[in-house]
């Protein structure tokens, strides 16, 4: 039986073009912008994707982003690039995946090459160091912000709040790799569905408006 978890259809929003046009709404330019401002590792991309792709353009739902993060984290390779590949593929197939990936890595590529060619003392520059002292605490807060919204989307309540708490604690305090947390959680969900919730209907139906509620 198929649960009533119809994830919002993205087709009600116009699909992005691959390269240009539509006032910068293409996959390439969107991911170029996101790549350009992803500072401090892959997770720093999440708030940008959330603002641009989930809230503004509504290409994917917040719930899909959550699922996608689980998949991207358990696949080899670069987290941020994995996410770009999936979103591009979902919206426009292989060509879309290619464009979003290119967009995502192009800023890195150009900036690093510029530094390697012309600006080798980049990390010793006092202006750069100062700007970064301001950026770093900001990035930490930017990653903290979606955590709360994601908790809402994942429908965290008293019965399952131990999962994120335990997961975060294991990673933070004991240096457990996030992959093991993902594997354990996926396996746990599978076993729960197979043996405990087998008779009752599976997951609670996801409310259609769950994502739009908080946007006034």
């Amino acid at each position: 039986m198929i649960p009533v978890t119809d994830i919002k259809d993205t087709s009600r929003q116009p699909l992005p073009s691959l390269m240009g046009g539509e006032g910068g709404g293409s996959l390439f330019t969107t991911f170029f912008r996101i790549g350009l401002f992803t500072i401090g590792g892959g997770y720093a991309m999440i708030p940008l994707i959330e603002a641009k792709i989930v809230d503004e353009k509504q290409w994917i739902t917040r719930e899909e982003l959550l699922d996608l993060m689980a998949v991207a984290q358990s696949c080899p390779g670069i987290f941020a690039v994995n996410i770009a590949i999936f979103i591009g593929y979902k919206l426009r197939g292989v060509g879309g995946a290619l464009m979003s990936t290119l967009g995502c890595i192009m800023p890195s590529f150009l900036i690093i090459l510029a530094i390697a060619l012309f600006f080798r003392q980049f990390q010793d520059n006092p202006w750069v160091a100062r700007a970064f002292r301001g950026i770093r605490p900001c990035v930490v807060a930017l990653i903290a912000a979606p955590t709360f919204k994601m908790a809402k989307t994942a429908r965290i309540g008293w019965t399952n709040v131990w999962i994120p708490v335990l997961g975060a604690f294991l990673i933070w305090m004991f240096g457990v790799s996030p992959i093991w947390v993902i594997v354990a959680a996926g396996l746990g969900g599978f076993l729960y569905g197979k043996y405990i919730a087998a008779d009752s209907p599976p997951a609670l139906p996801i409310r259609e408006g769950a994502d739009t509620e908080e946007k006034e």
């Binding site: 689980a70 984290q73 979606p146 989307t153 994942a154 993902i182 354990a184």
Partner: peptide
């Protein structure tokens, strides 16, 4: 079901 377990865990990762 797998994703019912995964979603809360991803919040933990974040």
């Amino acid at each position: 079901h797998v994703f019912t377990g995964l979603r809360p865990a991803v919040v933990g990762l974040l």
